[in-house]
Design a protein around this nucleic acid. Structure first.
Lengths: 242, 242
DNA sequence: TAGCACCTATAGCAACGCTATATGAACTGC
DNA sequence: GCAGTTCATATAGCGTTGCTATAGGTGCTA
């Protein structure tokens, strides 16, 4: 009933915490449980991780690597918006496969305090959306698009986790996913065509140019010029989120 | 430093819990804090509410009444989908105005366990969507639509709560809201028209009829006939969430 | 061999949720 | 008017929680 295998105590603590978390069924996990399973006494935990939250952060960081690996594996299909769809589904699958870990990562909301991991996940999605923006497929600045899509993605995943397994309806996720992607994409990026979103082409072009410049680190302008130029573009881009 | 006013201990406990919750800033609130502020000893709490969660449930129930009151005040505009928009905004405003209470209500997710309050909020939205479905404005069964919209609504609200006040961007909420409503509505319900969702008119009609029958408790069919009929309609309706 | 980090254990603190038990107050039936 | 019952609150304390002051052991370098 303990984790051995000649591993150093730090690794044993991490493994014990992850294992207890995965099998906790949602109820709390105590430091005493963790240290006992790791075959270690209390102060060892605090020596290596500072406090309980530090340990959980470390577990989360490991979980995030796995999460990112899943996101990146699917990435380059050449169609950025298609990649966003896969990202969404991968996010949901990650949450349903490891609900307790997911809840620690994305379900621990506190007012005015964004966990680092959420910012990372958002950056990952923004990076992908940037490619869509460069090719003029985005109706909205990538940052805002990423934030909205991820919020809906997290909300949907949390709802699915809260539901009993046989009642989980992944079609709801698919519908919401497509609705969000549709909302942020330009008409030429859509299959069904013929929707006038009311956004002028200059705004779309500004969004695309903004994204392209940030991605390419162009040398054709001095850094101060570039800074001003980017700020100007940023203002135009943001005026699109009416 | 205590709540008096000749109120009975039960009411004082409720008020103390709500006040501490509102000012906790996200950190945990202990039963000892609550009972001390209420001017009462520990067993009194357990006599009236069973346990800590029971007390919080009672606080949440009171908060939910306030939430429902806000939702219902805005309700009957004659345009159900417009009412859904207001519902969404009201939900977000409620969350931003009382973030701690909101987090207890909607942020306490545990695997395979849906809090009663979520089901209530969903029923409230489903009720409203039913009106839209009756008039043929819904592309998707009301239950599924309510679940999806609410999931996105909660996700967006949680994201906004986690952001620092000056950085909260309500336009993201508006965009996501419109995207969700757009996704579940039929073409004739949309302002921009001319989008073919690929749903056949018979499916939309089935959804509308299904909603109308459930709302009216029609007497024109026997209960066994009605049951079979509803099941049949339900199957057609659900085939629309492709 | 001496000294020095590094790591782990012994023992225990304050705070937590909760409860077994007892006492007072209010109502009920005769 | 009084005993019996029920409701409501208090005293005191249990077991568990996250965390730490302190000390001892281990392996490396000088």
């Amino acid at each position: 009933m303990s984790i051995d295998g000649q591993l150093p105590p730090k690794a044993r603590l991490l493994r014990a915490a992850a294992e207890l978390l995965a099998n906790s069924g949602g109820s709390a996990v105590s430091t005493r449980q963790i240290t006992q399973l790791a075959g270690v006494t209390a102060p060892t935990l605090y020596h290596h991780f500072g406090d309980k939250e530090g340990l959980f952060d470390a577990v989360v960081a490991a979980g995030f690597d796995e999460y990112v690996a899943g996101e990146r594996d699917f990435a380059p299909s050449g169609q950025p918006l298609e990649d966003i769809r896969r990202m969404w589904d991968n996010h949901v699958q990650f949450g349903l496969k490891q609900p307790e870990l997911y809840l620690v990562m994305f379900g621990n909301i506190r007012p005015e305090s964004r966990p680092a991991i959420v910012a990372d996940a958002e950056a990952l999605m923004e990076e992908m959306l940037n490619k869509a923006a460069v090719s003029g497929q985005l109706n909205v600045p990538p940052k805002e698009a990423a934030r909205s899509i991820l919020a809906a993605n997290v909300g949907m995943t949390l709802m699915l986790i809260a539901e009993k397994v046989p009642e989980r309806n992944l079609e709801l996720s698919a519908m919401t996913r497509d609705a969000m992607i549709f909302a942020v994409s330009t008409e030429q990026a859509r299959d069904n065509g013929s929707v006038d979103s009311g956004k002028s082409s200059v705004v779309v072009a500004a969004i695309a140019l903004n994204a392209a410049l940030q991605a390419s680190h162009s040398d054709q302008l001095s850094s101060s010029e570039l800074k001003l130029f980017l700020e100007w573009l940023h203002r135009i881009s943001n005026s699109s989120t009416s």
